[in-house]
């Protein structure tokens, strides 16, 4: 699949980008909640791919790696959020700094506590099972199941939907 797993050509990077940018963008937006920070996080995710991305066995493996990396990138950014609060005025001068319009559903998801976001995305949007999610995120299966159990209650309250049932 790759001519050199560690040094990728521009075409290879562009191909990976086009395959997965929407996925990475959606994961990042769940954390960052605004366009500018989301784009920064997307770029950082692909920078990590360039610097240290492994050889991928399949597109599924590639996607899982990017999702996990995007989540970690966003969490690292949020860990330093004290500094970002102090410099938040920077965002007002950058283009496209306005919030992306979101409906009730997306608002409910993006306002979830951090730990639930990637799990919600992977389960309800990508359709992964809790076992697969645990494998992607390197978390115990019981933790993932607990997260899903907790988030169903929260989303049900906010949206009035029963997330236990298939829809």
């Amino acid at each position: 699949m790759m001519s050199d797993p560690l040094l990728r050509t521009d075409k290879e990077i562009a191909d990976i980008y086009m395959r997965h940018v929407k996925t990475v963008y959606r994961v990042c937006f769940a954390y960052m909640k605004n366009r500018a920070d989301t784009e920064d996080a997307v770029q950082d995710t692909f920078f990590r791919l360039i610097r240290s991305g492994p050889a991928f066995e399949s597109e599924e493996h590639e996607k899982a790696w990017l999702i996990k990396t995007a989540s970690n990138v966003c969490k690292n950014v949020l860990r330093h959020w004290w500094r970002r609060r102090e410099s938040i005025e920077e965002h007002y001068d950058t283009p496209d700094s306005e919030e992306i319009g979101t409906d009730d559903v997306l608002s409910a998801v993006t306002s979830l506590p951090e730990k639930y976001k990637t799990v919600v995305y992977l389960y309800y949007y990508e359709g992964y099972s809790s076992v697969e999610i645990a494998d992607i995120l390197k978390k115990p299966q019981s933790t993932v199941r607990n997260y899903l159990h907790e988030v169903r209650a929260v989303l049900k309250e906010r949206l009035g939907e029963n997330f236990d049932e298939e829809q």
């Binding site: 963008y25 959606r26 559903v105 359709g127 949206l159 298939e166």
Partner: peptide, 19 residues
């Protein structure tokens, strides 16, 4: 399992062409 309502909302979320 996929949730249609979430899927529809999330589908709208993507970077613009310029972005």
């Amino acid at each position: 399992m996929k949730n249609n309502k979430l899927s529809i909302s999330w589908d709208k979320l993507e970077p613009s062409e310029q972005a």
